[in-house]
Amino acid sequence: MLQYLAKRLLGLIPTLVLVGALVFLFVHLLPGDPARLAAGPDANAETVALVRQDLGLDKSLPEQFLRFSTGALRGDFGRSLRTKRPVSTEIAERFWPTFWLTVASMAWSVAIGMTIGVLSAVWRNRWPDRVGMTLAVSGISFPAFALGMLLMQIFSVQLGWLPTVGADTWRHYILPSLTLGAAVAAIMARFTRSSFVEILHEDYVRTARAKGLAEPVVIIKHGLRNALIPVVTMMGLQFGFLLGGSIVVEVVFNWPGMGRLLVDAVDMRDYPVIQGLVLLFSLEFILINLIVDVLYAVINPTIRYR
């Protein structure tokens, strides 16, 4: 197992190098001169030249790439063009709000999504199934920004129960995590249901029932555990997506996370920040995939890695 982990971790490096090179190229292919944008509406050509030099954009593309990659190796991703602070600081500051919001929304959406999924599967084509799946389809179809605004309008403006924007206390987490988690809960519910329906037709479930086990034991012990594999895969994927910072939800709730940072960075052509963020997102995905692979072995001991 340890050997497997080490191998996978080493395998990260070429992927990241490739991603880094692609990101660098893509970002520089975007239209528009970042120096002109950074210098602002009142600036004359002389100031723009000064800003360009200041940002190191007067150097040739290969030279810039060399600087970028040697810096990245040392953990230095340059300075933000906008705020002039190190990219690592900018991202570190925004990472935790997004992380905790992701954890909060994943926690409740997995709990609720799986409950609905299991109930729907057990009472397939009966009313719990229909109610559950109606909820799930609505959850997927309702756009996050509309849900966010609706929740804010009801719970903050009309009822005054919850704060509108910011991320200071746990009360600030309720509305954004609900908004963010709605779609995930819906996806989890549908996934759990289909996976469970399949499992319930397996021979070992019939055997378990035949040997006289109580139905809850059959479902939870024999069913759930086996149904988890595809669900965990999906969970990992969703976690990765959410960890990228939901742009819509973070903008609506003014969440100080990475989604907003990305919007600001793209808007201002803040190359170093965009590069840093995309690299981080790729790294997150790779790590999550690794964790998911390990989880398979935990859930189903017949799976072994070498």
């Binding site: 804010m152 903050s156 509108t164 924007v165 910011g166 903008v251 907003r260 919007v263």
Partner: peptide, 11 residues
């Protein structure tokens, strides 16, 4: 307080 979204500012 910078609040980017128009509707959130109004809220």
């Amino acid at each position: 307080k910078p609040v980017v979204d128009n509707n959130s500012r109004a809220a």
